[in-house]
Design a protein around this nucleic acid. Structure first.
Length: 296
DNA sequence: CGCGTTTGACCGGCGC
DNA sequence: GCGCCGGTCAAACGCG
């Protein structure tokens, strides 16, 4: 996917922000000279804000491009390492599958241990030809206020069908099926991490054969107001297959990206002023629209 | 009353 | 063959 092409990186900062910046009081009756001076001042301010807008736009475009590049690199890296991992023996795999050792594991080849479907791979020598469900593992942080929570909010609806305490981890493991089952074969195992109880490890088996329930039916307008939403949500334009494969990396990158961008932007006083102006400008624009509608 | 969750029982794979 | 263990089933239960 081309991340940058989906975003209108214009922050729309110059939509009537000046009056609000200059004066909070409602506009008064002015003389012609003061109006003229104010117009000139507004024009300068408009130029300045436009320049800032342009600069921010460039910054965002660069960041989006970097994000796309890094994401592609990570995808390549994980794919190659998974291929290598598939060559490891069953025993070795069991040992290395300790959930605490990895942050995010995506396994497109489905080399994980899944024997419950009755297709015993150990009895069939040509196991590389057996189609196994895709297995991916995702870490997610739970609500700190709810210590017993084994809920991973991934947008899909799940039905819990079992819970078990496993040997390697004192916290129980919960078993979920997609609520679209038996039509949808996807299963999910959720268990808290041994090392950090605030982190739950969700292991997904299979692929959803239905649209994402929380996914909007069509792409939202790419305005500045939707910018952060775009960065924190999965891209609605990427295919379902890509969505499944990229989801774990995407979450981590989005989290990092949003945090980094937020900290960078909040340190910039110019950005704060511009943001305030943009928001105020929006309000003013809305008020103007309402007034116009009322007048009509 | 319907639906989702809980939980003990059961099943099958795997190692010894 | 036996025991351990992970995964699944299904009856009981709770909630809206």
């Amino acid at each position: 996917m081309e991340f940058t092409s989906l975003l209108n990186t214009s922050l729309d900062l110059n939509s009537k922000p000046i009056r609000v910046l200059l004066n909070d009081a409602p506009p008064k009756q002015e003389t012609r000279e003061s109006n003229f001076m104010e117009l000139g001042f507004e024009r300068n301010e408009l130029k300045r804000v436009s320049a800032e807008n342009k600069k921010l736009t460039e910054m965002l475009t660069n960041m989006c491009e970097n994000y796309t590049q890094l994401r592609n690199q990570l995808l390549e890296y994980t794919t190659s390492s998974n291929t290598a991992a598939a060559a490891i023996s069953n025993k070795r795999r069991k040992a290395s599958a300790a959930e605490s050792s990895a942050i995010i594991i995506n396994n497109p080849s489905g080399s994980g241990s899944s024997s419950s479907d009755g297709e015993d791979s150990s009895k069939k020598p040509r196991e590389e030809h057996i189609i196994k469900p895709k297995i991916s593992r995702v870490l997610s942080r739970t609500d700190p206020s709810d210590h017993n929570s084994l809920i991973v909010k991934d947008g899909y609806q799940w039905r819990k069908y079992g819970q078990k305490v496993t040997r390697d981890n004192p916290s129980p493991r919960a078993y979920f099926k997609c609520s679209f089952a038996p039509t949808c074969p996807v299963k999910k195992k959720v268990q808290k991490s041994i090392e950090d109880q605030s982190i739950v490890v969700a292991t997904y088996e299979g692929e959803h054969n239905h649209p994402h329930p929380s996914k909007p039916p069509h792409e939202p307008p790419a305005t500045s107001a939707n910018l952060l939403r775009c960065l924190t949500k999965p891209n609605p334009q990427i295919t379902h297959q890509e969505d499944q494969e990229a989801k774990p990396q995407q979450h981590q990158f989005q989290h990092f990206f949003v945090e980094h961008m937020a900290s960078t932007l909040t340190k910039d006083p110019n950005f704060k002023a511009a943001l305030a102006a943009a928001i105020s400008g929006k309000f003013l624009q809305q008020n103007n629209n309402n007034t116009t509608e009322n007048n009509c």
